[in-house]
Write a protein that binds this DNA or RNA. Structure first.
Lengths: 144, 144
DNA sequence: AGATAATCATTGTATGTACAAACAAAATAT
DNA sequence: ATATTTTGTTTGTACATACAATGATTATCT
């Protein structure tokens, strides 16, 4: 009657976190489609517009990606003329272009849309709660 | 004094889920290093050993990846002689090899090691709780 | 039975992301 | 002042994963 035990999947934080990551990424890409960007690029632009001249190092930290990944993100946004680099010694400062600034409202609208979509399914309380717990968990696990 | 508002990151389930996914994936790959496999491949083998002759379709569902991804996973494990395919009409059944069966204990040990690592940081209760919530969330979000 | 639709798997291609190595600039030590 | 170390960035390469298109088999309808 009862098949083999497969609880090792749903009990494993690696598996469950990655599963949710794939699911919500699809939802997020959908919500961000009107911007012509994927969500991470949208958030990068928001950071740059919020702090013009922010360094790549800071951007990588805030977005929790490696410096090499961040280099590639900025490459792409520079190609699209949404941000500009200014080399300052060994660091690179990133500024928004006018075009980039002009996108911020569209990006914010997509963020709201995304949030509405998942809050509708999960409930606002629960969605907030789980986000907080995810932040806490990665924070704890990242300290070595 | 207080810089620009960046709460849009920590409040966004897309961002927080992906951040945890990256963090725990690194931990998991580390714990699985002794197996010579990444965790997803390890779990695939456990499923195949638990249900010899399971179809690729079922494997994709249980692992929550697309069929094309699963094809690539099985390709790799077949190359390593850990599983075998048997074509059965339009479906493909997957069987463990002796070598694959022989790995299962090593894989289980790596799973335990992974769990110990994150439970040590997060606490057993909390880790269980958040896994359950992640399963619930992706389940809800996947129903369209 | 033959035509059409549905299902399962595969392949081509693309993207996000990481690691390790290389490079360039700055800081520190001698 | 030069040599060494540290820090920030970039590049080459690799992998997990997805989507869209294609192929192959089975099921359904007439």
């Amino acid at each position: 009657m009862s098949g083999p035990d497969e609880s090792f999947l749903t009990n494993c934080l690696f598996f469950t976190a990655n599963r949710l990551s794939r699911t919500i990424t699809k939802l997020a890409e959908d919500a961000f489609a009107p911007t012509g960007l994927t969500p991470m690029y949208g958030y990068l632009i928001r950071l740059v517009v919020g702090t013009p001249g922010i360094s790549q190092k800071e951007l990588a930290e805030k977005l929790a990606v490696t410096p090499s990944t961040l280099t590639r993100f900025v490459d792409k946004l520079e190609l699209k003329k949404l941000v500009e680099r200014k080399v300052q010694g060994k660091t690179v400062l990133v500024y928004p272009t006018a075009k980039g600034e002009g996108m911020v409202e569209t990006i914010k609208a997509a963020s709201r849309d995304l949030r509405n979509r998942y809050e509708e399914v999960l409930g606002k309380e629960f969605a907030d709660e789980i986000s907080r717990q995810l932040v806490f968990s990665s924070g704890q696990l990242e300290k070595q």
